[in-house]
Computed example of a mutant assay.
Amino acid sequence: MTDEQIKGADPVVAAGVEKQLQGADVPTPQRIVVLSLIHRPPQRIVNYVQNILRRGDEAHVFVSRIEHWEEAELDPRPHLYPLDRPEEQLLVRRAERALVFRAPKAISNAAGRLADKRWGRPLRRPAELMSRAQPKASGAIHKRLFMPPYRAFRPQLLAKQFDTALSSIDFDTVDLVVASDVYTVTLAARLARLHPDVPVTTALEL
């Protein structure tokens, strides 16, 4: 029906036709949950979220570090959900810092204080060597011994750190969950178990 036909039709009929046309032109926005646990998200993931927003849909993004997503300056802005507590405050990370960095540094500092005493002169050379070697040794232990197994268990650890986010989203209204990187697969599996009616995918497609 053309605009002229609508204007010339019965007012009740014309109103009904216009309502139908308006409804056909305005699709219902989707609610899409995107999981992104790489600290600094790759541009392809940022672009995917931007495309969701530009299409008029809602983007709810689970993130490990909210500041990197805020730096992306997406417009309009997505809903961002950080970890319940920063990753650095997890027990395993705090224990690693204490054992690998703080304890050796404390020992090195104590040796340096002893070497400064008059009777501690024989310790000065070893204390200086220890002071120089300690940061490198701690860094090597962190990089080569701690991080490889931590990366393997990181998905399981972080999947349990989104209880606040999960309780703030009504998943009965969510249309899709997207696991955008390897670290989010465990979290996506958890959501699939909790909400079996919500589709879960790893494909960044609209």
Rank of each mutant, 00 (worst) to 15 (best):
M1H: 11
T2W: 10
T2S: 15
T2P: 12
K7Q: 14
K7N: 12
G8T: 11
A9L: 14
P11R: 10
P11C: 07
V13Q: 10
V13Y: 12
A15P: 13
G16A: 14
V17D: 05
L21V: 09
G23N: 13
D25E: 15
T28P: 08
P29T: 01
P29N: 03
R31G: 04
I32Q: 07
L37S: 08
I38Q: 10
H39V: 09
R44K: 13
R44C: 04
R44P: 00
I52M: 00
R54K: 07
G56S: 03
E58M: 01
H60Q: 00
V61G: 00
F62N: 04
V63N: 01
E70D: 00
A72M: 02
P76Y: 00
Y81L: 01
Y81A: 01
R85D: 11
P86N: 01
L90Y: 05
R93S: 10
A95F: 07
A95D: 00
R97I: 08
A98S: 05
L99M: 09
V100A: 03
V100K: 03
R102Y: 11
R102E: 11
A103H: 04
K105S: 06
A106G: 06
N109V: 07
A110S: 03
L114V: 05
K117G: 08
G120N: 06
L123P: 05
A133M: 12
A137H: 10
A140W: 15
A140H: 13
H142Y: 15
M147A: 15
A152E: 14
A152G: 11
F153W: 15
P155E: 14
Q156N: 14
A159N: 10
F162Y: 08
T164E: 05
L166F: 05
S167R: 14
S167P: 01
I169H: 00
T173V: 07
V174T: 06
V177R: 09
V177Q: 11
A179M: 02
S180M: 03
T184F: 03
V185M: 09
T186K: 14
T186P: 04
A189T: 09
L191W: 05
P196G: 10
